[in-house]
Simulated assay, not measured.
Amino acid sequence: MKNTLNVTASHRVLILALLFAAFACYLLIEPYINSIVMAFILSLLMFPIHEWIEAKLPKYKNIVAFLSCLVLTFIIVIPLLLVFSAIVQQGSVFSQNMYQWVTGGGIQEMFAHPWVVKGLSIVNTYLPFDTIDPQGIAQKAAEFATSLGSNLVAISAKVLGDATNFLMDFFLMLFVLFFLLRDHDKLISALRHILPFSRSQEDRLLSEIEKVSKSAVMGSFLTAIAQGIAGGLGMWLAGFPGLFWGTMMGFASFIPVVGTALIWIPATAYLFITGDTSWGIFLAVWSIAVVGSIDNILRPLLMQGSAGMNTLMIFFSLLGGIHLFGLIGLIYGPLIFALTMVLFTMYEEEFKDFLNSQDNS
Protein backbone atom coordinates (compact mmCIF):
# COMPACT_ATOMS: atom_id res chain seq x y z
CA MET A 1 0.00 0.00 0.00
CA LYS A 2 1.31 3.40 -0.98
CA ASN A 3 1.94 6.01 1.68
CA THR A 4 -0.42 8.99 1.55
CA LEU A 5 0.28 12.53 2.71
CA ASN A 6 -2.49 14.50 4.42
CA VAL A 7 -1.76 18.20 3.85
CA THR A 8 -3.25 20.48 6.50
CA ALA A 9 -3.41 24.29 6.56
CA SER A 10 -0.30 24.44 8.76
CA HIS A 11 1.52 22.24 6.25
CA ARG A 12 0.64 24.65 3.44
CA VAL A 13 1.93 27.59 5.45
CA LEU A 14 5.14 25.69 6.23
CA ILE A 15 5.65 24.79 2.53
CA LEU A 16 5.03 28.40 1.44
CA ALA A 17 7.44 29.68 4.10
CA LEU A 18 10.02 27.11 2.99
CA LEU A 19 9.66 28.13 -0.68
CA PHE A 20 10.01 31.80 0.26
CA ALA A 21 13.12 31.08 2.35
CA ALA A 22 14.59 28.93 -0.43
CA PHE A 23 14.02 31.75 -2.94
CA ALA A 24 15.69 34.23 -0.55
CA CYS A 25 18.67 31.87 -0.24
CA TYR A 26 18.84 31.62 -4.02
CA LEU A 27 19.02 35.42 -4.29
CA LEU A 28 21.93 35.37 -1.83
CA ILE A 29 23.96 32.81 -3.80
CA GLU A 30 22.80 33.84 -7.31
CA PRO A 31 26.00 35.86 -8.07
CA TYR A 32 28.03 32.73 -7.34
CA ILE A 33 25.71 30.11 -8.85
CA ASN A 34 27.99 29.34 -11.81
CA SER A 35 30.92 28.56 -9.52
CA ILE A 36 28.69 26.32 -7.40
CA VAL A 37 27.31 24.47 -10.43
CA MET A 38 30.79 23.98 -11.89
CA ALA A 39 32.02 22.69 -8.52
CA PHE A 40 29.16 20.19 -8.50
CA ILE A 41 29.92 19.00 -12.04
CA LEU A 42 33.67 18.80 -11.39
CA SER A 43 32.96 16.82 -8.23
CA LEU A 44 31.26 14.21 -10.43
CA LEU A 45 34.22 14.13 -12.81
CA MET A 46 36.79 14.10 -9.99
CA PHE A 47 35.04 11.53 -7.82
CA PRO A 48 36.87 8.45 -9.22
CA ILE A 49 40.22 10.12 -8.42
CA HIS A 50 38.87 11.21 -5.03
CA GLU A 51 37.75 7.65 -4.23
CA TRP A 52 41.21 6.31 -5.18
CA ILE A 53 42.93 8.79 -2.83
CA GLU A 54 40.34 8.08 -0.13
CA ALA A 55 41.12 4.35 -0.34
CA LYS A 56 44.76 5.18 0.46
CA LEU A 57 43.86 7.55 3.33
CA PRO A 58 40.46 6.34 4.62
CA LYS A 59 40.62 8.17 7.99
CA TYR A 60 41.62 11.63 6.69
CA LYS A 61 38.61 13.09 4.86
CA ASN A 62 39.85 16.69 4.99
CA ILE A 63 43.29 15.80 3.63
CA VAL A 64 41.77 13.62 0.90
CA ALA A 65 39.42 16.41 -0.24
CA PHE A 66 42.31 18.90 -0.18
CA LEU A 67 44.53 16.58 -2.26
CA SER A 68 41.70 16.07 -4.79
CA CYS A 69 41.33 19.85 -5.15
CA LEU A 70 45.11 20.15 -5.49
CA VAL A 71 45.15 17.56 -8.29
CA LEU A 72 42.39 19.46 -10.11
CA THR A 73 44.34 22.71 -9.74
CA PHE A 74 47.42 21.15 -11.35
CA ILE A 75 45.30 19.62 -14.11
CA ILE A 76 43.62 22.95 -15.00
CA VAL A 77 45.79 25.89 -13.91
CA ILE A 78 49.27 24.84 -15.04
CA PRO A 79 48.26 23.94 -18.64
CA LEU A 80 46.19 27.15 -18.81
CA LEU A 81 49.18 29.27 -17.71
CA LEU A 82 51.46 27.63 -20.29
CA VAL A 83 48.90 28.06 -23.07
CA PHE A 84 48.09 31.64 -22.03
CA SER A 85 51.76 32.69 -22.06
CA ALA A 86 52.23 31.15 -25.53
CA ILE A 87 49.04 32.85 -26.78
CA VAL A 88 50.27 36.24 -25.52
CA GLN A 89 53.60 35.74 -27.29
CA GLN A 90 52.09 34.60 -30.60
CA GLY A 91 49.34 37.22 -30.38
CA SER A 92 51.93 39.96 -29.90
CA VAL A 93 53.88 38.77 -32.97
CA PHE A 94 50.68 38.57 -34.99
CA SER A 95 49.68 42.11 -33.96
CA GLN A 96 53.10 43.48 -35.00
CA ASN A 97 52.91 41.68 -38.35
CA MET A 98 49.38 43.00 -38.90
CA TYR A 99 50.54 46.55 -38.14
CA GLN A 100 53.43 46.26 -40.62
CA TRP A 101 51.14 44.73 -43.27
CA VAL A 102 48.51 47.47 -42.99
CA THR A 103 50.94 50.40 -42.81
CA GLY A 104 53.04 48.88 -45.61
CA GLY A 105 50.15 49.02 -48.09
CA GLY A 106 49.11 45.39 -47.81
CA ILE A 107 45.42 46.24 -47.51
CA GLN A 108 45.52 48.36 -50.69
CA GLU A 109 47.16 45.41 -52.44
CA MET A 110 44.39 43.13 -51.22
CA PHE A 111 41.61 45.39 -52.55
CA ALA A 112 43.44 45.65 -55.89
CA HIS A 113 43.36 41.86 -56.32
CA PRO A 114 41.17 40.87 -59.32
CA TRP A 115 39.03 38.47 -57.25
CA VAL A 116 38.33 41.15 -54.63
CA VAL A 117 37.57 43.77 -57.30
CA LYS A 118 35.16 41.41 -59.04
CA GLY A 119 33.53 40.33 -55.75
CA LEU A 120 33.01 43.94 -54.61
CA SER A 121 31.55 44.80 -58.02
CA ILE A 122 28.96 41.99 -57.72
CA VAL A 123 28.13 42.98 -54.13
CA ASN A 124 27.71 46.66 -54.99
CA THR A 125 25.61 45.84 -58.09
CA TYR A 126 23.18 43.17 -56.88
CA LEU A 127 22.98 43.24 -53.09
CA PRO A 128 20.85 45.85 -51.29
CA PHE A 129 23.67 47.21 -49.16
CA ASP A 130 25.36 50.57 -49.10
CA THR A 131 28.20 50.82 -51.59
CA ILE A 132 31.38 49.28 -50.18
CA ASP A 133 34.26 51.72 -50.67
CA PRO A 134 37.68 49.99 -50.60
CA GLN A 135 39.45 53.28 -49.92
CA GLY A 136 37.25 53.97 -46.92
CA ILE A 137 37.92 50.51 -45.49
CA ALA A 138 41.66 50.93 -46.10
CA GLN A 139 41.59 54.27 -44.31
CA LYS A 140 39.76 52.79 -41.31
CA ALA A 141 42.24 49.90 -41.19
CA ALA A 142 45.16 52.33 -41.28
CA GLU A 143 43.62 54.34 -38.42
CA PHE A 144 43.16 51.14 -36.45
CA ALA A 145 46.76 50.07 -37.11
CA THR A 146 48.02 53.49 -36.00
CA SER A 147 46.13 53.20 -32.70
CA LEU A 148 47.03 49.51 -32.33
CA GLY A 149 49.36 50.16 -29.40
CA SER A 150 46.73 51.87 -27.28
CA ASN A 151 44.16 49.26 -28.33
CA LEU A 152 46.47 46.47 -27.16
CA VAL A 153 46.91 48.20 -23.80
CA ALA A 154 43.10 48.41 -23.40
CA ILE A 155 42.67 44.77 -24.47
CA SER A 156 45.45 43.67 -22.12
CA ALA A 157 43.79 45.51 -19.22
CA LYS A 158 40.47 43.77 -20.00
CA VAL A 159 42.18 40.37 -20.26
CA LEU A 160 43.93 41.00 -16.94
CA GLY A 161 40.60 41.93 -15.33
CA ASP A 162 38.95 38.83 -16.78
CA ALA A 163 41.85 36.69 -15.57
CA THR A 164 41.46 38.15 -12.06
CA ASN A 165 37.73 37.36 -12.08
CA PHE A 166 38.48 33.87 -13.38
CA LEU A 167 40.92 33.23 -10.51
CA MET A 168 38.41 34.47 -7.93
CA ASP A 169 35.67 32.26 -9.40
CA PHE A 170 38.11 29.34 -9.62
CA PHE A 171 39.13 29.55 -5.95
CA LEU A 172 35.47 29.92 -4.92
CA MET A 173 34.71 26.82 -6.98
CA LEU A 174 37.59 24.96 -5.27
CA PHE A 175 36.21 25.97 -1.87
CA VAL A 176 32.78 24.55 -2.75
CA LEU A 177 34.35 21.48 -4.37
CA PHE A 178 36.26 20.69 -1.17
CA PHE A 179 33.03 20.34 0.82
CA LEU A 180 31.20 18.52 -1.97
CA LEU A 181 33.93 15.87 -2.09
CA ARG A 182 34.39 15.63 1.66
CA ASP A 183 30.68 15.42 2.52
CA HIS A 184 29.49 13.63 -0.63
CA ASP A 185 27.73 10.75 1.18
CA LYS A 186 26.01 13.05 3.69
CA LEU A 187 24.76 15.39 0.95
CA ILE A 188 23.37 12.53 -1.16
CA SER A 189 21.65 11.00 1.87
CA ALA A 190 20.10 14.36 2.81
CA LEU A 191 18.93 14.91 -0.77
CA ARG A 192 17.37 11.43 -0.92
CA HIS A 193 15.60 12.04 2.38
CA ILE A 194 14.09 15.36 1.23
CA LEU A 195 12.97 14.32 -2.26
CA PRO A 196 9.38 12.96 -2.21
CA PHE A 197 10.21 10.13 -4.63
CA SER A 198 10.64 6.40 -4.37
CA ARG A 199 14.17 5.02 -4.15
CA SER A 200 14.08 3.83 -7.78
CA GLN A 201 12.94 7.29 -8.95
CA GLU A 202 15.67 8.98 -6.90
CA ASP A 203 18.27 6.62 -8.39
CA ARG A 204 17.10 7.41 -11.89
CA LEU A 205 17.05 11.17 -11.28
CA LEU A 206 20.48 11.31 -9.64
CA SER A 207 21.93 8.97 -12.24
CA GLU A 208 20.62 11.16 -15.05
CA ILE A 209 22.00 14.33 -13.45
CA GLU A 210 25.42 12.68 -13.22
CA LYS A 211 25.29 11.29 -16.76
CA VAL A 212 24.11 14.49 -18.43
CA SER A 213 26.51 16.70 -16.47
CA LYS A 214 29.44 14.56 -17.54
CA SER A 215 28.28 14.29 -21.16
CA ALA A 216 27.65 18.06 -21.40
CA VAL A 217 31.16 18.83 -20.16
CA MET A 218 32.77 16.13 -22.28
CA GLY A 219 30.66 16.92 -25.34
CA SER A 220 31.27 20.67 -25.29
CA PHE A 221 34.75 21.13 -23.87
CA LEU A 222 36.45 18.04 -25.30
CA THR A 223 35.01 18.90 -28.72
CA ALA A 224 36.37 22.44 -28.38
CA ILE A 225 39.79 21.12 -27.37
CA ALA A 226 39.85 18.61 -30.24
CA GLN A 227 38.76 21.24 -32.78
CA GLY A 228 41.31 23.68 -31.39
CA ILE A 229 44.13 21.15 -31.72
CA ALA A 230 43.11 20.06 -35.24
CA GLY A 231 42.44 23.63 -36.36
CA GLY A 232 45.69 24.89 -34.85
CA LEU A 233 47.64 22.15 -36.66
CA GLY A 234 46.03 23.11 -39.97
CA MET A 235 46.69 26.82 -39.41
CA TRP A 236 50.32 26.10 -38.44
CA LEU A 237 50.90 24.02 -41.58
CA ALA A 238 49.39 26.87 -43.63
CA GLY A 239 51.85 29.35 -42.11
CA PHE A 240 49.82 30.97 -39.32
CA PRO A 241 50.68 31.01 -35.57
CA GLY A 242 49.24 27.60 -34.71
CA LEU A 243 48.72 27.87 -30.95
CA PHE A 244 47.14 31.32 -31.10
CA TRP A 245 44.68 30.52 -33.91
CA GLY A 246 44.06 27.00 -32.59
CA THR A 247 42.94 28.52 -29.29
CA MET A 248 40.76 31.03 -31.16
CA MET A 249 39.17 28.13 -33.09
CA GLY A 250 38.58 26.28 -29.83
CA PHE A 251 36.67 29.28 -28.45
CA ALA A 252 34.85 29.78 -31.77
CA SER A 253 33.61 26.18 -31.65
CA PHE A 254 31.28 27.21 -28.81
CA ILE A 255 29.42 29.57 -31.18
CA PRO A 256 26.38 27.73 -32.61
CA VAL A 257 26.00 27.31 -36.41
CA VAL A 258 29.08 29.44 -37.29
CA GLY A 259 31.67 27.74 -35.10
CA THR A 260 35.26 27.44 -36.32
CA ALA A 261 34.29 28.81 -39.77
CA LEU A 262 34.56 32.25 -38.15
CA ILE A 263 38.34 31.70 -38.12
CA TRP A 264 39.24 29.45 -41.04
CA ILE A 265 37.13 31.14 -43.77
CA PRO A 266 38.90 34.55 -43.45
CA ALA A 267 42.26 32.73 -43.16
CA THR A 268 41.53 30.74 -46.34
CA ALA A 269 40.43 33.91 -48.16
CA TYR A 270 43.66 35.63 -47.09
CA LEU A 271 45.74 32.75 -48.51
CA PHE A 272 43.89 32.87 -51.84
CA ILE A 273 44.23 36.65 -52.10
CA THR A 274 47.94 36.62 -51.29
CA GLY A 275 48.57 33.97 -53.94
CA ASP A 276 49.05 30.90 -51.67
CA THR A 277 46.32 29.02 -53.56
CA SER A 278 47.58 25.53 -52.72
CA TRP A 279 47.70 26.29 -48.98
CA GLY A 280 44.31 28.00 -49.22
CA ILE A 281 42.81 24.83 -50.75
CA PHE A 282 44.55 22.71 -48.10
CA LEU A 283 43.23 24.82 -45.22
CA ALA A 284 39.67 24.82 -46.59
CA VAL A 285 39.66 21.03 -47.14
CA TRP A 286 41.32 20.38 -43.76
CA SER A 287 38.87 22.63 -41.91
CA ILE A 288 35.80 21.09 -43.56
CA ALA A 289 36.91 17.45 -43.59
CA VAL A 290 38.80 17.23 -40.28
CA VAL A 291 37.83 20.14 -38.01
CA GLY A 292 34.18 20.12 -39.11
CA SER A 293 33.82 16.35 -38.80
CA ILE A 294 35.00 16.54 -35.18
CA ASP A 295 31.99 18.71 -34.31
CA ASN A 296 29.58 16.56 -36.35
CA ILE A 297 30.80 13.22 -34.98
CA LEU A 298 32.50 13.73 -31.61
CA ARG A 299 29.95 16.03 -29.91
CA PRO A 300 26.86 13.83 -30.61
CA LEU A 301 28.90 10.72 -29.74
CA LEU A 302 29.93 12.12 -26.36
CA MET A 303 26.45 13.43 -25.59
CA GLN A 304 24.45 10.42 -26.78
CA GLY A 305 22.23 8.55 -24.36
CA SER A 306 21.26 11.63 -22.34
CA ALA A 307 17.71 10.68 -21.33
CA GLY A 308 16.98 9.57 -24.88
CA MET A 309 17.73 13.02 -26.34
CA ASN A 310 18.19 12.95 -30.10
CA THR A 311 20.57 15.17 -32.09
CA LEU A 312 17.89 17.82 -32.74
CA MET A 313 17.09 18.14 -29.03
CA ILE A 314 20.79 18.32 -28.15
CA PHE A 315 21.24 21.08 -30.75
CA PHE A 316 18.37 23.20 -29.38
CA SER A 317 19.42 22.57 -25.78
CA LEU A 318 22.89 23.93 -26.60
CA LEU A 319 21.53 26.85 -28.66
CA GLY A 320 18.93 27.83 -26.06
CA GLY A 321 21.36 27.32 -23.19
CA ILE A 322 23.89 29.74 -24.69
CA HIS A 323 21.14 32.27 -25.46
CA LEU A 324 19.80 32.25 -21.89
CA PHE A 325 22.90 31.65 -19.76
CA GLY A 326 25.92 32.40 -21.94
CA LEU A 327 28.80 29.91 -22.21
CA ILE A 328 27.74 28.03 -19.07
CA GLY A 329 24.48 27.29 -20.95
CA LEU A 330 26.37 24.53 -22.78
CA ILE A 331 25.93 22.63 -19.51
CA TYR A 332 22.65 24.10 -18.27
CA GLY A 333 20.77 23.57 -21.55
CA PRO A 334 21.28 19.79 -21.91
CA LEU A 335 20.81 19.34 -18.16
CA ILE A 336 17.42 21.10 -18.18
CA PHE A 337 16.25 19.16 -21.26
CA ALA A 338 17.38 15.81 -19.89
CA LEU A 339 15.86 16.32 -16.43
CA THR A 340 12.59 17.40 -18.05
CA MET A 341 12.51 14.15 -20.03
CA VAL A 342 13.27 12.06 -16.93
CA LEU A 343 10.53 13.84 -14.97
CA PHE A 344 8.14 13.35 -17.88
CA THR A 345 8.92 9.60 -17.90
CA MET A 346 8.34 9.45 -14.15
CA TYR A 347 5.02 11.30 -14.61
CA GLU A 348 4.03 8.84 -17.36
CA GLU A 349 4.76 5.86 -15.10
CA GLU A 350 3.06 7.37 -12.02
CA PHE A 351 -0.17 8.19 -13.89
CA LYS A 352 -0.08 5.21 -16.26
CA ASP A 353 -3.58 3.93 -15.39
CA PHE A 354 -5.13 7.40 -15.73
CA LEU A 355 -3.41 8.07 -19.08
CA ASN A 356 -4.46 4.64 -20.43
CA SER A 357 -8.08 5.27 -19.39
CA GLN A 358 -7.92 8.65 -21.13
CA ASP A 359 -6.65 6.97 -24.31
CA ASN A 360 -9.47 4.39 -24.20
CA SER A 361 -12.25 6.87 -23.45
Rank of each mutant, 00 (worst) to 15 (best):
L191C: 07
L187M: 08
I209S: 04
V102N: 01
L172Q: 08
I194V: 15
M98H: 13
V176P: 00
S198K: 05
S198C: 06
L148E: 02
I122H: 14
L181W: 00
Q201M: 05
I76M: 02
K214I: 08
E210A: 15
S213Q: 02
A86E: 10
L205F: 04
R182C: 04
K118D: 11
V88E: 12
I194A: 11
L120T: 06
G106D: 09
A112E: 15
I194T: 09
Q201T: 09
T146S: 11
A145D: 04
F197R: 01
L195G: 13
N165Q: 10
R204P: 03
A154I: 06
P128W: 09
N151Q: 13
F74L: 12
A142W: 00
L127P: 08
M173T: 01
I209F: 05
V83I: 08
K186T: 09
M168E: 10
E210S: 15
D185V: 06
A163N: 08
H113K: 11
P128H: 11
L181Q: 02
P114K: 08
V123H: 10
T73R: 01
G104F: 07
G106N: 10
G91R: 03
Y126I: 12
V102F: 03
E202L: 06
S200V: 07
L81Y: 04
S150D: 14
H113R: 13
V212N: 06
V102C: 08
L177G: 02
I76N: 00
H113A: 14
E143Y: 05
V117D: 11
P196V: 08
L177F: 00
L148Q: 09
I155M: 13
E208R: 01
Q201R: 07
W101N: 09
Q201F: 01
V71W: 01
K158H: 12
R204E: 08
L152K: 11
N151V: 02
L187T: 01
Q139F: 03
V77K: 03
S95W: 04
S150N: 14
G136Y: 08
L174Y: 00
R204C: 03
I137R: 06
Q96K: 14
A142K: 03
S207C: 05
D130F: 12
G136W: 02
L205P: 03
K186H: 04
L191N: 05
N124Q: 13
F170G: 02
A141G: 06
S198V: 02
S121G: 15
F178I: 02
Q201L: 00
A145P: 03
F74W: 02
L72Y: 00
T131M: 13
I137H: 05
I87S: 04
T146R: 11
S147I: 08
I155C: 08
G149T: 04
S200C: 05
G105H: 10
T146D: 12
D203F: 01
S150A: 11
T73C: 07
Q90D: 14
P114E: 09
L206Y: 05
I132A: 06
L120E: 07
I188H: 07
A142D: 12
M168W: 02
L160K: 03
A142V: 06
F84W: 09
K214D: 06
H193K: 13
